[in-house]
Nucleic acid binder design. Structure first.
Lengths: 130, 130
DNA sequence: ACTAAACCTTTCCATCATGGGAAGGTCAAG
DNA sequence: CTTGACCTTCCCATGATGGAAAGGTTTAGT
């Protein structure tokens, strides 16, 4: 299977597949005589795994760790849970930050009359920082 | 006022001040004989504005637009409100995405017993994608 | 007056995930 | 036999941030 077909089958585009190989996330695949990369079902399976982990917002080092654990059929689930929990904490932290940004902004937007007059609580806030 | 002092006074570090100048967000400041950048109260005021906008999560193009409006004392608040509203929508969209990531992950983490046994719903989910 | 520290300058490089584009080789269908 | 759709590698760009080098200047301490 060429890289384009593997991309299609896995949902990870060809550019990214090469990238994941370059950063060592994936082992270099077999090459055909024409030097084209050649992928099989297993590789596509791993690519799918990566794609799903990205959709859950895992960063690349975390994905690398999860992938290693996934390949190791005897891994302790403790390890996996630890990585996922840490990521979850991180996500929740970032959500909290964004929520506080959003609520501050929402108050300002609601307070701004938004017409042709120049006075605006949004700019006041950015100016004064109160 | 040297760049270091302006950084201290505004809370925006010197590296970033030069960067904002380089991307055209700030006009090039006066230079002293020694070619050091020379800042006054107005510049520090603008830097503070930028810092606060960053804290509210505005992206640089948005900040550039807000800064232009802020400088224009006769701007219609409508413009400002429009930019802020759009950013707010964007923030809320991203929060929603992250919340759905987090809740999916939370369910998985809770379902994983996290001991020395190898079976793990987190990996199952990444594998199967159900 | 000399020296060392603490500034300042520019320029280059790196991050992280993603992708555009060039230049060139290969393959399949018309 | 040409055309178009692949593939290859390599370089560059993003956005916000910062590290580091190599060099000039100012300030403080002796």
């Amino acid at each position: 299977m060429n890289i384009g077909a593997a991309a299609e089958a896995s949902g990870v585009n060809a550019k990214m597949i090469r990238h994941y190989e370059a950063i060592g996330l994936l082992p270099p695949p077999a090459r055909r005589d024409n030097s084209y990369r050649d992928y099989g079902a297993q590789e596509v399976h791993e690519l799918r795994f990566i794609g799903r982990a990205r959709k859950l917002g895992f960063a690349m080092p975390e994905i690398a760790a999860l992938l290693t654990l996934w390949r190791d059929k005897g891994r302790p689930s403790r390890e996996v849970k630890r990585i996922a929990s840490r990521h979850l904490d991180d996500l929740e932290e970032r959500i909290a930050v964004m929520r506080s940004m959003a609520s501050a902004l929402r108050r300002l937007v609601e307070a701004c009359h938004g017409d042709e007059r120049p006075d605006c609580p949004i700019l006041d806030r950015l100016e004064e920082g109160f």
